[in-house]
Design a protein around this nucleic acid. Structure first.
Length: 632
DNA sequence: ACTTTCACG
DNA sequence: ACGTACGTGAAAGTG
């Protein structure tokens, strides 16, 4: 057995790396000490848990002074027994380790994850801010430096340096580093020691936020099951889409090249050529450079946000090429190629679902970013299809943030309108513009509603809608007269923050720190966070009602799922009904819909494109693999 | 590493 | 006294 010593916060700690079965007697003795909690961590070949080449390399457990770094290839049985028998574990970002151990047959998520206390959840409850936002951060390194030992090593960074020494990239290093390499073993062990000590310090979070803490652990568990299930891709469709988008990009880039721009992404060149063509650019970025984003380029191309001609000027060909080329490249790289990159051997993708991410606790999805797929048309979402015999479904909340705002602000006009079943934006338009309001005016009323939720003013709403600022200002004044409670509530939050700690507290008791120079964001934080908690609690209720098996991903105010075709309608309605609730006397209503064979069908995609029939390949599911078991 | 842009709710 | 659009993830260029 090899043993390394390292001083953590003044205490001499030991990291053991057993090499034979005889060494494991000492490990059994360590377990027999009976620590209530064991910190748990894994090292694998990479973050791509679901790819064919992914391998589990090490499993580490430990307490505040001692870590055991176990090779998965040598000590499988010990590890399985340990994970199965022990009752309480601690991990940082437990989902990743639970999914890894599940994927490689060490223990199922169902058995393990409910037994893990996650230090990342606890840390988020105490301070949700990243380092850049003035908080501590949510990484093990940052939190250890703050709570355990300011000299705590950056294990991941230091290992990257070792990888670089071998001439490897970071991604290569995690797979290639010899499993007994001293730095690798030492840092693998240190992570569990740090995590165990971090847990002791963060227990305050459990005392202060017991109920929320419990809810977040439950949510994280259910989201892990959703990630393991994944979503099925239509690979032939994506391959055609990839070619198509690539051609679109090349075409637009060539056009731009003829107009003197080597790369449509080189803003300096775009600015220079636009100015040479006689265009006047005035908008500036935060850092003072001239701005050439979508909002600036669309008018130059003489189109609105829906690409309809405005016919107020001759379209600028460069503006057009930059807009179209960037869109094609974005859709190609961030979406179509991302889907292919992250798929598993069964053509499914399993995106990372961060259950507790934003300052407001909003969830996020990455690898790839499924919450940000284009909704303007069906092209990208068409890539996702239901399992054979299933239909996609989506259930969203109806104007949930507006309803939350109405409830929290106790604005009785808005509450009454909701209770009467009014369309909130139409109701607002009728109060602001009169009962004969136009479609355009309803749209402005909707934008003002969002503007209010976000804490914006007339200038911001004007910029986003394209309507004259004076008109918006007058409309916003009418809005304030119609819903006096909203403004009163916003002022109250700011006043409270100024007279106490710079934070807002949500109805469930979640504390959200405010930036002193952005106090106007307070209303948005409470509203966004509360809407998030409503969806989080709904996801928990759905799983507890046995409907979790139909869910695929959460998207802020909706869930996307799939159900057997013959019962899809009924199941969507059931999901909708479980999601609905009463929040402080305001109905939170849902809108269930059965979408069809692909997610794109919700955005107007044809059920089956005629050209696809001959090329569509049979999707064979390999029976008996853990993935399919999860689906049953 | 930072800035800018663009995709969503 | 006044007004401030909120929260993400991903990719490309620049330095």
């Amino acid at each position: 057995m090899r043993t390394y010593r390292y001083v953590v916060a003044g205490d001499l700690c030991e990291i053991h790396f057993p090499e034979s079965d005889e060494d494991m007697a000492a490990f059994e003795a360590f377990l027999a000490q009976g620590d209530k909690f064991l910190a748990l961590d894994t090292e694998s070949t990479g973050l791509d848990i679901f790819s064919a080449q992914h391998q589990l390399r090490l499993v580490q457990v430990g307490n505040s002074r001692e870590a055991w770094v176990l090779r998965w290839d040598r000590f499988k049985d010990w590890i399985r027994r340990l994970l199965g028998l022990r009752r309480n574990f601690i991990a940082h970002n437990a989902t990743f380790d639970a999914l890894t151990l599940d994927r490689h047959g060490a223990i199922s998520i169902e058995e393990l994850l409910p037994k893990i206390w996650d230090t990342k959840i606890m840390a988020h409850l105490l301070d949700p801010r990243g380092k850049m936002e003035g908080g501590i951060g949510l990484g093990l390194k940052e939190l250890s430096a703050e709570h355990v030992d300011s000299q705590a090593p950056d294990t991941s960074n230091d290992l990257t340096k070792v990888f670089n020494g071998f001439g490897w990239t970071k991604a290569q290093g995690w797979a290639r580093i010899p499993i007994e390499h001293m730095t690798y073993v030492l840092y693998a062990g240190l992570d569990v020691i740090l995590c165990h000590r971090l847990h002791e310090k963060l227990l305050l979070a459990v005392q202060l936020y017991g109920d929320i803490c419990k809810m977040e652990h439950k949510l994280q568990y259910f989201l892990a099951l959703m990630r393991r299930r994944g979503m099925l891709l239509d690979i032939p469709y994506i391959e055609r889409l990839t070619t198509d988008l690539h051609n679109q990009f090349v075409e637009q880039q060539d056009l731009a090249m003829d107009l003197g721009v080597e790369s449509i992404f080189a803003n300096e060149q775009v600015i220079a050529q636009l100015q040479a063509m006689g265009e006047k650019l005035t908008a500036t970025t935060d850092k003072g450079a001239l701005q050439v984003d979508r909002a600036v380029l669309l008018p130059l191309a003489d189109v609105n946000t829906n690409w309809e001609r405005l016919n107020v000027r001759e379209p600028n060909p460069l503006a057009e090429a930059v807009l179209k080329g960037k869109r094609a490249k974005k859709w190609l790289e961030a979406y179509a190629m991302g889907f292919l990159e992250w798929r598993d051997t069964n053509d499914r993708i399993h995106p990372v679902i961060n259950s507790l991410q934003a300052r407001t606790a909003r969830m996020s999805i990455q690898e790839p970013a499924l919450q940000q797929l284009p909704s303007s048309d069906w092209t990208i979402r068409r890539a996702f299809i239901a399992d054979p015999g299933f239909s996609m479904l989506a259930v969203d909340y109806k104007a949930v943030e507006m309803r939350v705002l109405a409830a929290l602000s106790e604005d009785w006009t808005m509450r009454r309108a909701i209770a009467d079943g009014e369309d909130l934006h139409s109701f607002t338009a009728s109060r602001v513009f009169g009962t004969n309001f136009s479609k355009k005016q309803r749209k402005i009323a909707k934008s003002i509603g969002f503007g209010k939720v976000y804490g914006g003013g007339a200038a911001g709403v004007a910029r986003l809608t394209g309507a004259p600022e004076d008109d918006i200002r007058i409309a916003m004044e009418a809005y304030d007269r119609t819903f006096p409670g909203i403004k009163r509530y916003s002022r109250k939050l700011i006043r409270q923050a100024q007279s106490g700690i710079m934070e807002v507290v949500t109805p469930i008791g979640r504390r959200l720190p405010l930036d002193p120079d952005r106090l106007y964001a307070a209303t948005n934080y409470v509203v966004q966070s509360t809407a998030r908690d409503l969806l989080a609690q709904a996801v928990i209720r759905l799983f507890e009602a046995g409907l979790g098996e139909y869910l695929l991903i959460p998207v802020h105010d909706e869930v996307v799922g799939q159900a057997p075709i013959e019962s899809a309608d009924e199941i969507a309605k059931e999901i909708g009904s479980v999601m609905e609730s009463d929040f402080m006397g305001v109905r939170i209503e849902s809108d269930p819909s059965v979408v069809g064979a692909s997610w794109g069908a919700a955005y107007g995609a044809p059920a089956v494109l005629p050209m696809e029939v001959p090329v569509r390949k049979e999707r064979r599911m390999k029976p008996g693999t853990w993935l399919q078991e999860a689906l049953i």
